[in-house]
Structures are given as structure tokens and as C-alpha cells.
């Protein structure tokens, strides 16, 4: 009796599993519409092998010089502002030299001008990004043009990427950000609670032939272009000036350069 009952239960289980086969098969074999539509980039799409930003920090003297850039970015990307520090979200912000270059800077006897200067920090769109390595779902991935992109639809919110990023570039949505938006840019989505976000070098603007919002707001104090294109302004700035990058010793190959 006991054995038969078990047998029946096993069979029931198996048949239940078998029932799921057909829908799964159908879903996999489905034909996506008859005639083939085409998918492609827009005509204005800007291209590069690896986008880079070169920030001429000599020309940013005080908070007043960086504020408009930060504001421009956070406004068009619907980055919320929280009273609670714990929930803070930021894509680009300013900090002191010793924090921006922690680990590779000495904070003793710095040139007085450099010591006070605001340094803009943001996701470095690393050429060898540890965040991409860590992400278990490829919600963070590297695009062909070097941008380290977030797929908010896929992110499970495990925050492994935040632990992996050595630059503190990533923020997590600890709650629904919408109620904390002062203005909303209706053309750009917000985020939902439970996903990670960061700067994307304005991928959505590059698609329309525009440069990143902060670069535009900087009025020539930041160069943007293809690292590997000798004719690009960014490449030339790097060639002509002595530049620094953050924590190069970690081998992530940041794509944000600083002229000091």
C-alpha cells in the first residue's frame, strides 16, 4: 500500500511537470511576426571605440563652477534628492582632491589651489570594469562604444556591483524615487525602488547626436570624444597635458581623465 501510494504521487508529479513542456516549447518556438521589421541606430548616433571625458580641473575654481553641471545631469535624468543621507543618489558630484584620488594621493602639502579645487567624480566607464564582472545577470554590461550601461529592467538589486566598484560611483534606490523628484524630465524615465543606477555618459543623448549634458554645461572645460581617435579633442587634450586618472593601480582603466 505504502509503496503504491508513493508511486502514484511520483507519477502525479511527473505528469504535472510534463504538462509544462508544451507551453515552454511553444514559447521558445514562437514566430515573432511574419514580415521582418528592421532594427537599427538613428542617423545622428555618435560613435566611438571608447568614449572618454577629459576634465580640465584648472578651470573649475569653486562650487559655483561645478554646480550647474551637476544640476544639468541630475535634472534631465530625474535623479531624486533625499533629505535622508542614507538614501542618497548621485550620478556626478564634486569632492576634494584627497577624496577623489584617495589611495594614490598624499594629503600633505598640496598645491594650495589644487587642495581647494572641486573635483568632479562620476562613473569612469572603466575599460576593464569590475562592476560588469560582478553583476550576476548582466544588468550591468559594457557596450561596444565603451559605455558601462545599466539595464534597469533586469537588475535584481543584489548590489554586488556597488561592492565591486572601487570609485563609489553607484547608487541604490532604497525606496521609490518618484515622490522625491522636484522636477521631472518627461522625456526620460525615472527608476523604481530596488535597482542600482549610475551615470551612463548620457547614452540617450549620444543616440541623438548630442554630447553628454555635463559636457555641454561645462562650456568647453570638459572634452569628450573617442579615446582611440587621434583627431578627437579628448585624445588631443590627453596628449598635450599631464593627466591623472583615479586609482589606476587597480587596473580598471578609468575613462575619465583629469588635467590638474
Amino acid at each position: 500500500m505504502d509503496i503504491r501510494r508513493r508511486r502514484i504521487l511520483q507519477l502525479l508529479g511527473l505528469s504535472a511537470a510534463a504538462l509544462t513542456v508544451k507551453p515552454v516549447y511553444d514559447a521558445l518556438a514562437a514566430d515573432p511576426g511574419a514580415a521582418r521589421p528592421k532594427l537599427g541606430p538613428g542617423r545622428e548616433q555618435l560613435r566611438a571605440k571608447q568614449w572618454v571625458m577629459v576634465i580640465d580641473t584648472r578651470r573649475f575654481a569653486s562650487e559655483a563652477d561645478v554646480e550647474p553641471l551637476i544640476e544639468a545631469c541630475h535634472r534631465i535624468h530625474n535623479v531624486p534628492r533625499f533629505e535622508l543621507k542614507r538614501w542618497e543618489i548621485k550620478w556626478i558630484w564634486a569632492t576634494e582632491y584627497k577624496h577623489a584620488f584617495s589611495g594614490t594621493s598624499s594629503d600633505r602639502f598640496l598645491a594650495a589651489a589644487v587642495e581647494k579645487r572641486p573635483f568632479l567624480v562620476l562613473c569612469n566607464q572603466c575599460e576593464n570594469p569590475p562592476c560588469v564582472r560582478a553583476c550576476p545577470t548582466q544588468a550591468t554590461f559594457k557596450r561596444e562604444d565603451g559605455i558601462v550601461m545599466m539595464d534597469f529592467h533586469r537588475c535584481i538589486g543584489c548590489r554586488f556591483c556597488m561592492a565591486a566598484c572601487p570609485f563609489g560611483a553607484r547608487s541604490f534606490n532604497y525606496t521609490d524615487p518618484r515622490p522625491y523628484l522636484k522636477h521631472t524630465n518627461k522625456l526620460f524615465p525615472t527608476r523604481m525602488k530596488g535597482v542600482v543606477e549610475k551615470c551612463s555618459f548620457c547614452a540617450e543623448r549620444l543616440a541623438e547626436g548630442k554630447r553628454p549634458a555635463c559636457v555641454e554645461a561645462a562650456g568647453g572645460k570638459i572634452a569628450f570624444g573617442d579615446l582611440y581617435d587621434p583627431s578627437s579633442e579628448a585624445h588631443q587634450w590627453i596628449r598635450k597635458n599631464y593627466t591623472l586618472r583615479r586609482k589606476v593601480n587597480l587596473g580598471t582603466e578609468p575613462a575619465v581623465y583629469y588635467i590638474v
Binding site: G33, P37, G40, P41, R143, M149, H153, K186, A207
Partner: peptide, 30 residues
């Protein structure tokens, strides 16, 4: 189609959809 659009836009960086009749659309829900 929305799923295809979001995959294409976010992951491949392609934003233009040309339907079988040759009409172009920017792939954007909003």
C-alpha cells in the same frame, strides 16, 4: 514588441524601428 524594443534600445543601443511597410519609429514607450 515592447519587450523587443526595450532589449534593443537598452542592450544594443539601437533606437530606430522600421516596420515591414518601411515606416520608422523611435523605439520609446513614453
Amino acid at each position: 514588441i515592447l519587450d523587443l524594443w526595450r532589449e534593443t534600445v537598452v542592450r544594443e543601443g539601437n533606437r530606430i524601428y522600421t516596420n515591414p511597410k518601411g515606416r520608422e519609429f523611435v523605439m520609446s514607450l513614453s
